[in-house]
């Protein structure tokens, strides 16, 4: 497997680019790359030339995460001011503004069927689930607070939820916290199942393997990517190689590889059969905040694409084969 640089856009945003996600293709258009930045805008780009489709404004403070509905019709973007803006991809009309104080908003993800949006709720130590029809809050999955006397500053900030991921079968939601623990929830019963341990520093990104609903990848500030059996509560492997925080992880649609972006300014491709980094891209000049594989489907040739976004204001597109 191999990554080959296709296109890079310098100064794609006026400020650091913090988030990226692919909007799946619809019948009328191909898949789009959506990026969010500190410059308070969300931009949509058309591959492979990365031509700018549209610039969405309407956020205050930096855009920290973006998520696309599996249908490709709607998408959500969230900023540091804790608002989630849900909008129609093609028209950019706002569909809903979500807010669930006192939760902040960090990573978001639509469930594979597209009925629910999961939002990592930061300091509330919980994940909010929003119904995508009514845009009403259906459930709040809270991490059980550790026993002990009065929760102090320390404890509470430890369970600060940063990242969230849906299992491909839609039955599980996993969320990662500042203290490095990963919590797995049963969605149907809205019930906390167990913790996955191994990290002791913030887990900023989580993704389930599309090939195996049990396998979960986590990216942490400890410079490691862990591969867990999320059901069996065991760690399958720890991938080391990054020199600094691992900020983002995504699994390839074929499930054979994962890509990571790190503070060490590199993007790495990991071969899961070898459990080792097979390629390191160092085209970015600053922290790589997001890596994302394009989902399969849509018109056009079925080739793998990986996009990465960085603090250096640039976005890059790679061919994955």
């Amino acid at each position: 497997m191999k990554l080959a640089g296709l296109k890079s856009i310098e100064n794609a945003h006026d400020e650091s680019v913090w988030a990226a996600a692919w909007i799946p293709a619809t019948e009328t258009r191909p898949a789009l790359l959506m990026t969010g930045s500190l410059d308070e805008t969300v931009k949509l780009w058309k591959p492979d030339e990365l031509t700018l489709e549209r610039t969405n404004t309407g956020h205050c403070l930096g855009v920290v995460s973006v998520a696309a509905h599996p249908s490709g019709a709607i998408a959500a973007s969230a900023s540091l001011d804790s608002f989630v803006r849900v909008f129609d991809v093609d028209s950019n009309t706002s569909i809903a503004n979500l807010e669930a104080p006192p939760s902040e908003v960090w990573q978001m993800q639509f469930d594979p069927k597209g009925t629910t949006l999961a939002v990592a709720g930061g300091g509330s130590a919980s994940v909010q689930l929003w119904n995508t029809d009514t845009w009403k809050l259906i459930a709040t999955l809270s991490i059980p607070r550790p026993e002990g006397p009065k929760p102090s500053d320390k404890n509470s900030s430890k369970k600060f939820v940063l990242s969230v991921a849906w299992s491909p079968d839609g039955r599980r939601v996993a969320c990662g916290s500042m203290d490095g623990t990963i919590s797995v929830f049963d969605v149907a019963r809205a019930k906390f199942l167990h913790h996955l341990e191994g990290h002791f520093m913030p887990v900023r990104s989580l993704v389930y393997s599309p090939a195996d609903p049990r396998v979960l990848f986590s990216a942490s500030d400890d410079a490691h990517v862990h591969m867990y059996d999320a059901e069996g509560k065991t760690m399958v492997a720890a991938l080391s190689g990054h020199a600094s925080w691992v900020l983002s992880v995504d699994a390839s649609p074929d499930g054979a590889a994962v890509a990571t972006g790190s503070s060490d300014r590199t993007v790495r491709l990991w071969d899961l059969s070898m459990r080792a980094a097979v390629q390191t891209m160092s085209n970015h000049g600053d922290q790589v905040w997001g890596v994302t594989f394009r989902p399969p489907g849509g018109p056009g040739p079925r080739v793998g694409r990986l996009a990465s976004v960085s603090d250096d204001k640039s976005i890059s597109l790679y061919d994955y084969s």
């Binding site: 500190l38 960090w106 900030s157 600060f160 940063l162």
Partner: peptide, 9 residues
């Protein structure tokens, strides 16, 4: 904002 992004808690 950058700092918040780095240490959200």
């Amino acid at each position: 904002l950058r700092a918040i992004h780095l240490s959200p808690s």
